[in-house]
Simulated scan of single mutants.
Amino acid sequence: MRWGTIGTSKITEEFINGLRKISNQKITACYSRTKDTATAFIEKNALLTAVGFTNFDAMLSVVDVVYIASPNGLHFDQAKYFLNNHKHVLLEKPLTFTVSQAEELIKLANQNGVILMEAFKTTHLPQYHELKKWTENNHAFLSTLIMNQYSSRMPEVKMGLYRSVFDPLLGKGSTYDMLVYPVELAISLFGPVNRQLSMTWRLENNVGLTNMLLLEHHGGVFTNITTSKAARGVAPSEIIGQDGATATFSQLTRLQNMRFYELHNKSPLKEIKGSNENPFVYEINDFLALVANKDFNKMNDYLQITLQTIAVLEKVDHDK
């Protein structure tokens, strides 16, 4: 398939490296606002089959699918354009800022017979399925999910400069750029949310920097979430099941160093280190399977979790 990319950040480079490991895929178009930036990105990543573009219309004839990794606030309009033009779209998280925007994109994808998927890597990892099975077998009832990552933009923030992810229109801060990860993982593991309580430490422009969130899922599971872009976290996440069963893991987005414990054992009963494989490989393969099989049922199952996640984030954002 012929891929176009939108965005020239590190995550786009990680995507490209993952795509290279999958046969019969090639990047034919790279979009940036300036031709020089697009050309430099192509040269840096040795994309011999790609051409730089500064106009979406010109890309349409050379791509079958588009990977969008632009600033969060641009996701909706860009995805809508390509879905309207019957192109498959792999869209970075968060899919959109609002439920109504997400519902519009989902409707477009179904109407036009093209695949839309949020690029949420965690639930496509092999070890995610191990964790999901463990939570079901051990009747998990309580989870603590932690994701703290000190932002490279904190020096600017301290000077009162709120750019990129901290821009209220383009990024919306920790709420949409970081909290999305543990919320979507929790909903994937434990189901829809019945009730939520949140506190957000906000910058002067009202954008989130640190979030604390408590979720009650329909099945009765409680999830406690802490995220911050102003801290470096080292504590693992933890899920507790019946009869003292406990699961822990680090690097929430990659589910590394998973350990499963029983009540009276200090040493883990089982350990899963996690793969060193580029996590995009699993995600892209699942996306391509949706395309090849025209599997709109599974696409919509994925997107229901995405919708439920956005609903939680939208409420957090509105809880001033």
Rank of each mutant, 00 (worst) to 15 (best):
F41Q: 08
F41L: 02
L209C: 09
L185G: 01
V281N: 04
T210I: 06
F76S: 06
P168K: 13
D64K: 01
K132M: 10
S174W: 00
K294F: 00
D36W: 05
N297L: 15
L288D: 04
T253L: 14
Y162M: 12
V157G: 05
G171I: 07
V157K: 05
A245T: 08
M199Y: 02
K315H: 12
E277D: 10
M299E: 00
L131Y: 02
H86L: 11
K298P: 00
H139V: 04
F249K: 11
N55A: 08
N300C: 06
P155Q: 05
G160W: 12
E314W: 05
K35P: 01
L47G: 07
I146T: 03
N138M: 02
L214S: 11
Q101S: 11
F260G: 08
K320V: 13
N211L: 02
G241W: 06
K80V: 00
N205F: 06
L161S: 04
D177E: 12
T39P: 00
N257A: 14
L290I: 02
L145S: 09
T12V: 15
Y162G: 06
Q127A: 13
N55C: 13
E14G: 05
F260K: 12
A186H: 13
T175A: 09
T5K: 06
D64C: 10
I42G: 12
Y181C: 08
Y302H: 15
H264D: 15
E103W: 02
V89L: 04
R20Y: 10
P268W: 03
F260T: 09
R33A: 11
H86K: 14
T309R: 05
T39W: 01
L197Q: 07
M159G: 04
M178I: 14
N148Q: 15
G160D: 14
H75R: 07
C30D: 01
A140G: 03
G233L: 03
A140I: 07
M1I: 14
D36H: 12
G191R: 06
T49I: 04
P126F: 11
K298D: 01
Q196W: 09
I11F: 08
K273H: 14
V62F: 07
F120W: 05
K133N: 14
L74Q: 15
R163D: 03
K132P: 04
N206C: 11
I68E: 07
M154Q: 10
A50L: 04
A29W: 00
H318M: 11
E277I: 08
N24L: 11
A79V: 07
